[in-house]
């Protein structure tokens, strides 16, 4: 099962290297990793998705805690949190296929953000599963390239993650 860790770290040079290095040397695998500043500029949030089958999540969390720059780690339960991924996908589209693609875009509440004669760039957010389903439907038209952010997540309710 995929497990999401929301990790608050000091926003300092080298912190990402420390986290990535820790995963590498302890033989842990990262499924996806998203890093950005939070509401306070001294603190960044790393959202790390790991596979429970590959490593004990408890050991990953404890080892992460040992890094001096790690402030707080929250393990997010999928039922108690909201998770999203952002996808940008470039699909082949000519006069014949364009309207069908637009219908799929509408159903998934995605957005066309760039149009040219031969391709469309579509922006879409959703859970990992929804993003994958969307990608699969677009495959038949010819996917030129795509980029996904990896999983972002936030705990439900009043308490901050």
């Amino acid at each position: 099962m995929k497990h999401t860790l929301s990790v608050l770290v000091e926003n300092k040079p080298g912190v990402l290297t420390r986290v990535a290095g820790l995963f590498a040397r302890r033989g842990f695998n990262i499924d996806s990793l998203v890093v950005a500043e939070t509401e306070s500029p001294e603190v960044s949030r790393m959202t790390i998705t790991v596979d429970e089958q590959d490593q004990p999540v408890e050991q990953v969390t404890k080892q992460l805690h040992k890094l001096i720059n790690v402030i707080k780690i929250t393990s997010l339960d999928p039922t108690e949190s909201v998770e999203r991924e952002l996808l940008l996908i470039k699909v082949k589209a000519d006069a014949e296929t364009r309207s069908e693609i637009m219908q799929i875009v509408e159903i998934f509440r995605a957005k066309i953000v760039d149009v040219s004669h031969e391709v469309l760039i579509i922006e879409m957010t959703g859970t990992r599963e929804k993003v994958s389903a969307f990608m699969e439907l677009l495959e038949q038209f010819g996917v030129v390239e795509l980029v996904r952010t990896g999983r972002l997540a936030m705990g439900r309710g009043k308490r901050p993650t």
Partner: peptide, 14 residues
């Protein structure tokens, strides 16, 4: 040297 010693220090500073 901070990079080289990353896995073998408790912490480091440049």
């Amino acid at each position: 040297i901070t990079g080289i010693t990353l896995p073998i220090v408790k912490h480091s500073y440049l």
